[in-house]
Design a protein around this nucleic acid. Structure first.
Length: 503
RNA sequence: GGCCCCAUCGUCCAGCGGCCUAGGACAUCACCCUUUCAAGGUGAAGACCGGAGUUCGAGUCUCCGUGGGGCUACCA
C-alpha cells in the first residue's frame, strides 16, 4: 500500500499492564510519524478492560515513554478531544449496550457456561486430540435458562455467533491478502462476566467511534483479525485499514521480554541514550527509506516514511548499533546542548552514577564548558560524563603502582620519569597546553625516553586512569597546583611499592 | 497439534526477473593517524535456509520441505 495522502487518524492503544517495550513503542512511533506526515491526528487510548492486570506504574510509564520520545498526541488522556473519554474503563456502558444490541440482532448470545465447565471441555478435547475450542453450547440456551443461571449467581458472558462455514479475508497493508477459514474460529466472548468488554469488542467500537482510519498494531494481532472483521460485519460498520507491523525480537529471537535486559524506552533513557537517537534507531528497525541513509532527523523521517517500505520480517534488537548512533548524535551536538544533557547525569548522587558526593552541586558550569571539548567526541552515552570527567572535579585520584608503569618500564624508570616531570611541573612558567607539550617533549628527549613513556605515567598520575583526554589539555585544565599534588602523590605510591617488587 | 505470519552477512537495512562477480551500516580483524583512549581514514573477512518448478534468465515469481515467530483465554 502506498502512503495515504489524506490525513489519517491513527491511535496508540496500550494496555496498562506492563512497561511498554521497544517494539511496542515503535508501533506508537510509526503511528505518530504517519500522523505528522499526513497532518492527521494521533490518538492515545488506554485499554484497561482487564482490571485484574491493571498497573498504575505501567500507565505512568506509557506516558513518560511517549513524552520522552517526543511523541505528542492530539487526542487522549490529559489532552481531551472530541471523543472523550479516552480510557476504556470509563466507556463501559458503550460496550454493554453494543453487546446487547448484538444479542438482539441475533449476532450474539448470552452464555452461562462456567469457567470450570470450559476447562473440563478443553481437557476432554485435548484428551481426544481435538483442538481446544468452545463448542457453542450457549447458542442453545433459552432465555429462561439464562435467567435462572443469572439468579443463581452464575457468571454470564456474551459471545459472538461465528458462522460455521465460509471464510473471511482482509488486505493487510504490508502483507497483502490474508484469508481465514471460519471453521477455525469458535464463538468468542465479547462481553465478560464482569460486564467489561474483551479487547475484540472494545477496540472496534472505539476505533469506529473515534474515526480511526488505520489500525497500526503488532503482528500478533493478525490471528485475531478475522474476529474483528466479524464484529464489524455484525455491527454493520466498515473496518479500517490494517497495518500489521512485524515484532521486534530479543537476541535469542524470542519476543522481547524482561530476560533480554533493557527493553523499555525508559531504560535506555536512564542508560544515557538520547531520545533523538533512540527515535531514529527504532524507526530503522523494520523500516528504511530505501537508500542507505541511516542517520536522519525527525523531519526527514516524517517526510520519507512510508507504509509500503515497512519490512515483512521481524527484527532483532541490537543495542550495540544504537550505541554507535548515540555517539553520532552526541558528536553532532553543540557544546551547550551537550552540557545540558550531561548535567543531570553528572549531578545525580554518586550512588546513582553521578560525580563523587564530595563535589558540591551545582557543579561549575564554566569549568565544565571548558572541559567538554576534551571529551565530546569520546562520549557514546550521557552516563559516561561522570567517568570521563570526575578527576577534574574531585581529588580522589589514587592510582595503583602497577597502573603508573608505562609500557616496558620498571619502577625505577617510572620514578625517574615522574620525578623529572614533577620538577618541570613546578617550574613551568606557563600552563598552556602548547607550552606544556613543548616543554615535556624536550624533557623526554633530555632524559632519553620516548614521549609515550614519559607521558603515560604522568597521565595516570594526574588522572588516575590509563585512558584520558589528551594529556596537556588535561593537565592545563586540572591546573598547576593540583598537578604537582597528584604527581607527588603518585611518586609516594611508587616509592612505597618499590621495596616489595625489588626483592 | 491446528491456523496464520516470516526467512539476504553475527545484527539492522538495500535488492521488488537481467544493472548482483549480491550493496550500505553496526560489530569484528588489519593497517594508517596518534602521548593513552576515542574519533577519523583505508582495507579485509562475512549472507541469498534446502529442493523442485516457471522463465532465454531467479536473491527477486510458484509450490513443497525445513527453521523461526505469533495466535489458539471471561489477557491485551
Amino acid at each position: 500500500m502506498t502512503n495515504p495522502t489524506t490525513p489519517v487518524r491513527v491511535r496508540y492503544a496500550p494496555s496498562p499492564t506492563g512497561i511498554p517495550h521497544i517494539g511496542n513503542i515503535r508501533t506508537a512511533l510509526f503511528c505518530w510519524v504517519l500522523a505528522q506526515q499526513t497532518e492527521g491526528q494521533f490518538v492515545i487510548r488506554i485499554e484497561d478492560t482487564d482490571r485484574s492486570r491493571y498497573d498504575a506504574d505501567a500507565e505512568k510509564a506509557i506516558f513518560e515513554s511517549l513524552d520522552w520520545l517526543g511523541l505528542g498526541w492530539d487526542e487522549g488522556p490529559g489532552k481531551g478531544g472530541p471523543h472523550e473519554p479516552y480510557v476504556q474503563s470509563e466507556r463501559k456502558q458503550i460496550y454493554i449496550e453494543a453487546a446487547h444490541r448484538l444479542v438482539e440482532s441475533g449476532h450474539a448470545y448470552f452464555d452461562d457456561t462456567t469457567p470450570e465447565q470450559l476447562h473440563a471441555l478443553r481437557e476432554r478435547q485435548r484428551a481426544a486430540k481435538q483442538p481446544p475450542r468452545y463448542d457453542g453450547r450457549g447458542r442453545h440456551r433459552s432465555p429462561e435458562e439464562i435467567e435462572e443461571s443469572c439468579k443463581a449467581g452464575l457468571p454470564i458472558t456474551i459471545r459472538l455467533k461465528v458462522p460455521e462455514f465460509g471464510s473471511v479475508s482482509f488486505v493487510d497493508a504490508i502483507r497483502g491478502k490474508i484469508t481465514f477459514e471460519l471453521k477455525e474460529l469458535d464463538d468468542f466472548v465479547i462481553l465478560k462476566s464482569d460486564k467489561m468488554p474483551t479487547y475484540h469488542l472494545a477496540h472496534i467500537l472505539d476505533d469506529h467511534a473515534m474515526g480511526i482510519t488505520h489500525v497500526i498494531r503488532g503482528d500478533e494481532w493478525i490471528s485475531s483479525t478475522p474476529r474483528h472483521l466479524l464484529i464489524h460485519q455484525a455491527l454493520g460498520i466498515e473496518p479500517p485499514e490494517y497495518v500489521h507491523v512485524p515484532l521486534i525480537l530479543g537476541k535469542d529471537k524470542a519476543k522481547l521480554s524482561k530476560r533480554h535486559g533493557a527493553t523499555s524506552a525508559l531504560e535506555y533513557r536512564d542508560l544515557g541514550f538520547l531520545s533523538d537517537a533512540v527515535f531514529n534507531f527504532i524507526c530503522l528497525l523494520g523500516w528504511s527509506p530505501g537508500d542507505d541513509t541511516e542517520v536522519m532527523k525527525r523531519e526527514e523521517i516524517v517526510k520519507r516514511f512510508s507504509i509500503d517500505r515497512i519490512n515483512d520480517s521481524p527484527a532483532t534488537f541490537d543495542a550495540e548499533k544504537l550505541e554507535w548512533m548515540n555517539g553520532v548524535y552526541i558528536r553532532n551536538m553543540d557544546e551547550d546542548t551537550l552540557m545540558g544533557h550531561l548535567l543531570p547525569f553528572m549531578e545525580r548522587p554518586e550512588s546513582e552514577g553521578g560525580l563523587p558526593d564530595s563535589v558540591t552541586r551545582p557543579i561549575d558550569r564554566e569549568y565544565l564548558k571548558r572541559l567538554l571539548p576534551l571529551v565530546h567526541e569520546r562520549l557514546k552515552l550521557l552516563t559516561e560524563g561522570t567517568e570521563t570527567l570526575d578527576f577534574f572535579f574531585a581529588n580522589n585520584v589514587s592510582p595503583a603502582a602497577e597502573d603508573l608503569l608505562g609500557r616496558k618500564m620498571d619502577i625505577e624508570m617510572t620514578e625517574r620519569a615522574l620525578a623529572t616531570a614533577l620538577e618541570l611541573c613546578k617550574t613551568a612558567t606557563s600552563f598552556e597546553p602548547e607550552h606544556l607539550e613543548t616543554e615535556y617533549r624536550a624533557l623526554a628527549e633530555q632524559i632519553e625516553m620516548k614521549p609515550g613513556q614519559l607521558f603515560s605515567p604522568i597521565r595516570v598520575a594526574t588522572t588516575g586512569k590509563p585512558f584520558a583526554p589528551p594529556l596537556f589539555d588535561t593537565m592545563s585544565a586540572i591546573g598547576q597546583d593540583r598537578c604537582i599534588e597528584r604527581i607527588e602523590n603518585a611518586l609516594s605510591v611508587l616509592r612505597s611499592a618499590a621495596p616489595a617488587s625489588t626483592d
